[in-house]
Design a protein around this nucleic acid. Structure first.
Lengths: 189, 189
DNA sequence: GTCTATATGTGGATAGAC
DNA sequence: GTCTATCCACATATAGAC
């Protein structure tokens, strides 16, 4: 019988995703995660042997999350609407993004910097890769074969830059204005 | 007689700027900085009472650095050339930026997240503010009064996003391609 | 599976001799 | 001004009783 166990494990994983997003990887303590999950601090190591295993769990969870977003945006008719739906999804999270930054970008930027955490960073950057591939596919459908990749990278750059500025100034406006600008660009493509 | 003192202090400040850029604020130890500066670890606290004081010193140093860059770019004849000179300066640092990310963006993103370090993050974001103001002034000279601010933000977003992608994938190419794209945009304005 | 107690290691910071 | 020794707080992780 591990019913309760699975429940606690997923509660810990969800809590880790939130707390690490809010505080960054390095500054979140295992006890922070336990507290957020409502799990006794002593029990944590039964589910996650190391702090790093929390990191991979969180990144895998983010990967799934963005996969689902892309899949949902893919339901729109036509590549323009699909791309703009994705941009809109990011804009809709602008308040949260201004508060804590982009969870993927934050992890990439924090974890790339040190040898002990590069593998985590690499795993996180795969989320970017998947988004870029998806965007590129949509742009190819639009007949932008020649510079589909660079355009895809442009879209992600603007979104990530806007998230960073919004976070730095604690102001969601940047995501609003740059997102709109981006949507206009896509429509005129 | 504080000749040697001033020397050591500035060596520590320079070392801090480099090491914090490379490892991030949280993961750099005071001893890392001392070692890099070639200063005995015990002497450090004579010059910098706390780790936070290293943070402010580094940010002030970055602020001066970017001020100087903007001033130099400002020597170009005409706002288009001035903006593109600044973009070029960023592109010229693409290898370093891919290795360790943008020092300003990295600090903003890392330090915003926790109450103990928000003041440092705020100070760091002032560097962004200065760049945005400078860009906006150039764009106004170009007659873009109506959306000069949003265009300025767009330029910084693309550069920061490109730096983040370059860092995440450890590949300076993103700064190259997005920088070029941005320069073309400015010329066609 | 859960919780208490604790080991272990580390990093920021201080006291004080020189 | 410089360096040694050390304090202290804290965070990851383990051992082991229940």
């Amino acid at each position: 019988m591990m019913r309760q166990g699975q429940n606690k494990k997923s509660r810990l994983q969800d809590a880790a995703k939130d707390v690490i997003h809010e505080r960054g990887y390095e500054r979140t303590r295992i006890t922070d995660i336990a507290e957020r999950a409502g799990v006794d601090a002593g029990s944590v190591y039964y589910y996650f042997k190391t702090k790093e295993s929390f990191g991979t769990a969180v990144i895998d969870s983010l990967a799934k999350h963005y996969s689902a977003l892309l899949e949902q945006a893919g339901l729109q008719p036509g590549p323009r609407k699909r791309i703009n739906a994705f941009i809109q999804m990011v804009m809709d999270k602008r308040v949260l993004l201004a508060q804590h930054g982009c969870p993927v970008g934050g992890l990439c930027s924090e974890l790339r910097k040190t040898a002990e955490t590069v593998d985590l960073a690499q795993r996180a950057s795969e989320v970017f890769r998947e988004i870029l591939d998806w965007l590129e596919r949509q742009l190819r459908e639009l007949g932008k074969a020649k510079d589909a990749r660079i355009l895809a990278e442009h879209v992600l750059c603007v979104l990530q830059g806007a998230a960073l500025l919004a976070h730095s100034f604690d102001n969601p406006r940047h995501l609003q204005t740059q997102g709109r600008r981006l949507q206009r660009l896509i429509l005129n493509l």
